[in-house]
Design a protein around this nucleic acid. Structure first.
Length: 894
RNA sequence: GGGCGCGUAGCUCAGCGGUAGAGCACCACGUUGACAUCGUGGGGGUCACAGGUUCGAUCCCUGUCGCGCCCACCA
């Protein structure tokens, strides 16, 4: 006998082990149709947060669903080496344990420590994914720094370089002074900070012109003035027309710089003149390039003032310190023309949080604009389809404005760039040092020492190859053939640019096919204020703690049920609790079945069921199965979950199990046996349908129920999805049972309104009921009595003197007057109902008398309206009659 | 500045042109009955606002107001 509740804590670990041991999560070699999902590889430093929980729940739902549908399913699992994040963690660890710093250790030794860290503490998230119930083939786990994946990275780099799609360039990059590395545009976040704007006067070098002796510029970053190469004004700006081409003497540096004309300055803003600092500002860089203006770098890798263009007294100062000193000097020189407070949006490193400096450095770039062309076209042609569709716009928007992708990072942890330099700086890009040497020898005609590029690649470079590198590429493996292009990508919108777009580019370039057919973009799980959950904000909900408290099934079902399209998820505990209760409800329904010997019977053929109630539930089950299937195919997880919730609780538990109680306790052995088997069959279907969402409780029930009926020879995870073949829907049975449900519901409402004590049966007389109704009432009298505690009798005659009649379902009911009824309240209710019906009838008739409606609305809609009028009119007549009688009874003087 | 989205019951939210929905909360009644992690019933909404399209709009279009996100930029 089952306990009264399911115990997730005791059960989950056992089932995780059982699934793994069964091999059920490996692709089925016999199945012809392939289905593959690539996990968005979590960072090796990561721990499971609620976003992972959502993301992986949805993937697991799909994976279990498709597996049960008989496909050969590969859920490719793995981890990302997460360059900056991991290096940060290990460096912090070193600092905490009083070790040497990264630089003191040296590159080789530091990397050893990182690998050691990875072996020990990395990948904790893998076990946490298992706790969530993820049914992946764990034996195929990959890591972006695996030898195989690293080889793929090298091959891709070399190939793209050979094709001219990777190149080295000296230009302005986003520089993170904390990690001392370049980062890509995407890794920069703009934040508003309070700042100031200063106005400086730059004196004209050759004295006053037309009485003007200086030109005023505005800056929020005075320290960069040391690197000014020009002052720009708009060509149409009359104020400066006569100054264009003149020189100004840059204060402090005493360099002479020209006044140039360019479209960039906005004459409306400030003085209309802009200082041009090509080495420290992206806009200025463009202007300087256009005009061949010199660039003067002012900072070292830690963003301290340094270099030839920085006077001795500022050398080594932090740029903010230098800023104050420069402003002071300008003021002393009498050239400060004003200061005002100003909110500035400042770039920050998304990992380091420090202010990013634009710096002039040499880096490796991927020609993203070129690769984006096919990647954009693929979505336009529908080779890959976003769900929800609106994300395609976001994708296009970015792809059409894409900048070259800076892929080199001045870090140690990552894929080292496969480029070697000869003594004269000649670059040899090759898949290995040996290969580079061979090429170099040919180039130089002799062996020359080569040094490898110090830099590593952006983490997202290897992630971009994930859909094919994990399948064995560049080798032509059977997996690659079978699973590429993959079926569905499930991910959050926050990494559409970082990851999805780049996988599209790389996949299309190297595989000539899109990496995935469907891209399902889910919402972000946010905190109550609608903010992104983040460790730094301290607003995270820990999924593992939620699993401890409510069980993994409850968390999974909640996430799936809330994964509606188009809105962020605000997770609430009461909701999880509610779905935990749903599990308990299912558990107890199974317990009821077990107590009543509703045991699994393999030979049971639902098509042969005779009892109306059984035929009805079989039809309802098929309807539910179809709904769940359709919704899942369209990635409407919430709809699928809701359909299941309603079917299990409101149909199976609330009605079916109640309706069969008399049969199970009755004398008709044939009916009893059929009912037991039908109940078992239905429960069996429910377990299958629910399994993708709640794998633990369903698997456990599957096994436990099997202990009593026929023995199960397979785990539920290996079972097949319910057969959706038609022929099981039985309209007649459905109509009859729905009639009972209506009757019971309405009678119950009536009882409540009449304030009848719960134990009391009340006699009701049906007046003028037709024969079919009488037969039905007769047949289901016990049931109706049980469920509503009403004893009906029927009469073909009119209602007895002094009783009130009213409508119940399709029957007219007479209520003897000596009850405990609040007639006034009842009269009010009836009057309200009559009024409602009147307005409905008027409304519907108005529609019907509109010739356009009749002509143009679909036929079935018009018919529906006609029926509605008829139905409402009959009902209204009955109610009005009852109301009249009631009023008469209330007021005998009439 | 450009783009995307959201305003539906007290709360959290579904809703795929055809009589407005769920869960929670609330009120009433109910417990030796598979389940109090429960059951039955009930109250509660001019679907943000204004126009338009349509026989018919919560749904499509336009505008307004409020809120959120993304991208770019502010010398």
């Amino acid at each position: 006998m089952l306990d009264t509740t399911f115990d997730p804590k005791a059960t989950e670990p056992r089932l995780i082990a059982a699934w793994d041991k069964s091999g059920a999560c490996k692709p089925d070699p016999k199945a012809r149709a392939a289905y593959c999902i690539m996990i968005p590889p979590p960072n090796v430093t990561g721990t499971l947060h609620i976003g992972h929980a959502l993301n992986n729940t949805l993937q697991d739902v799909l994976v279990r669903f498709e597996r049960m549908r008989g496909k050969s399913v590969l859920w490719q699992i793995g981890l990302d080496h997460a360059g900056i994040a991991t290096q940060m963690v290990v460096e912090r660890e070193l600092a905490r344990s009083g070790n040497q710093t990264r630089r003191e250790l040296g590159r080789e030794e530091f990397l050893k420590r990182v690998w050691a860290w990875k072996e020990q503490s990395g990948g904790a998230i893998v076990n946490q994914l298992k706790r969530l119930g993820a049914s992946a083939d764990w034996s195929r786990e990959r890591f972006t720094m695996d030898e195989g994946l690293s080889a793929a990275v090298r091959k891709v780099f070399v190939q793209l370089h050979r094709d001219g799609l990777i190149y080295k360039d000296k230009r302005l990059v986003n520089w993170d002074p904390h990690f001392e590395t370049a980062i890509s545009d995407l890794e920069v976040v703009q934040r508003d900070v309070k700042g100031k704007m200063w106005r400086f006067a730059y004196p004209l070098a050759d004295g006053p012109i037309d009485g003007v002796s200086e030109i005023e510029i505005a800056t929020t970053r005075p320290e960069t003035m040391l690197g000014d190469g020009a002052v720009a004004v708009h060509p149409s700006d009359q104020r400066y027309a006569n100054l264009i081409g003149r020189m100004v003497r840059l204060p402090i540096s005493e360099r002479l710089i020209p006044i140039i004309a360019d479209e960039y300055p906005d004459p409306e803003f400030g003085s209309g003149a802009v200082k041009i600092t090509g080495a420290h500002d992206f806009n200025d860089f463009a202007v300087a390039r256009r005009h061949g203006i010199g660039m003067f770098p002012l900072m070292d890798t830690k963003a301290r003032m340094a270099g030839d263009y920085v006077p001795q007294r500022f050398q080594g100062l932090d740029r903010l310190v230098a800023r104050d000193r420069i402003v002071a000097e300008i003021e002393e020189m009498g050239l400060l023309r004003g200061v005002e407070d100003k909110t500035i949006s400042q770039p920050h490193g998304d990992r380091s949080g420090v202010v990013i400096e634009p710096m002039l450095t040499e880096q490796w770039y991927v020609d993203a604009p070129k690769l984006a062309i096919t990647a954009t076209a693929a979505v336009e042609q529908g080779d890959s389809v976003f769900t929800p569709r609106q994300w395609e716009k976001t994708y296009y928007e970015w792809m059409r404005n894409i900048e070259p992708w800076c892929v080199s990072r001045q870090l140690w942890w990552g894929h080292r760039i496969p480029a070697w330099y000869g003594p004269d700086g000649q670059i040899f890009v090759a898949e290995s040092e040996a290969e580079a040497k061979t090429v170099a020898k040919k180039h130089y005609g002799a062996d020359r020492p080569l040094t490898q590029d110090e830099d590593v690649l952006d983490t997202w470079f290897s992630s971009a190859l994930w859909p094919f590198s994990t399948l064995g590429w560049p080798n032509d493996t059977p997996e690659l053939k079978k699973f590429y292009p993959t079926a569905t990508l499930v991910t959050g919108f926050d990494i559409i640019f970082f990851w999805v777009a780049r996988m599209m580019m790389m996949g299309l370039y190297f595989m000539k096919e899109v990496p995935f057919k469907d891209i399902y973009i889910h919402a972000l799980v946010r905190d109550a204020a609608g903010a992104k959950m983040s460790k730094s904000k301290g607003n995270v909900m820990d999924p593992l703690e939620l699993i401890d408290r409510f069980g993994a099934d409850a968390l999974r079902f909640t996430l799936a049920a809330m994964a509606a399209q188009g809105r962020d998820i605000k997770l609430s505990e009461p909701r999880i609790e509610g779905y935990r209760n749903f599990g308990t409800k299912l558990w107890n329904a199974a317990r009821f079945c077990q107590m009543n010997e509703c045991n699994w019977w393999e030979e049971f053929d639902p098509a042969q069921a005779k009892q109306t109630v059984n035929r009805w539930i079989i039809g309802e089950t098929v309807k539910a199965a179809r709904a769940v299937t359709t919704e899942l195919e369209a990635f409407r997880f919430n709809e699928a979950a809701n359909a299941l919730y309603r079917f299990v609780w409101n149909v199976f538990c609330d009605w079916y199990l109640e309706l069969i109680k008399p049969l199970l306790n009755g004398e008709d052995e044939a009916a009893k046996a059929e009912t037991r088997r039908t109940a078992a069959w239905t429960l069996d279907q429910i377990l299958r349908l629910l399994h993708p969402f709640m794998p633990f409780i369903t698997e456990e029930l599957w096994e436990r129920l099997g202990e009593f009926g026929r023995k199960r020879d397979r785990l539920l995870i290996q079972e097949r999805w319910p057969d959706l073949a038609g022929g099981l829907l039985n309209p007649a049975s459905a109509e009859e049972i729905e009639w009972i449900i209506d009757l019971v519901s309405e009678t119950r409402a009536l009882r409540a309104q009449m304030n009848v004590p719960p134990a009391a049966r009340i006699p009701l007389l049906l007046v003028g009921a037709d024969e079919a109704t009488c037969v039905r009432l007769e047949r289901y009298q016990d049931l109706i009595d049980r469920l509503a505690r009403l004893e009906y009798s029927t009469s073909a005659d009119a209602a007895p003197e002094g009783s009130v009649t009213f409508v119940l379902g399709e029957a007219t009911v007479a209520l003897p007057l000596d009850g405990v009824v609040d007639f006034a309240a009842e009269a009010e209710r009836l009057a309200k109902e009559v009024a409602r019906l009147d307005s409905e009838i008027t409304k519907t008739q108005a529609k019907l008398s509109n010739p356009e409606f009749v002509a143009r609305a679909p036929e079935e809609v018009v018919d529906e309206h006609r029926e509605r009028v008829e139905e409402f009119t009959t009902q209204r007549a009955k109610l009005a009659d009852a109301l009249a009688r009631l009023r008469a009874a209330l007021n005998p003087m009439h």
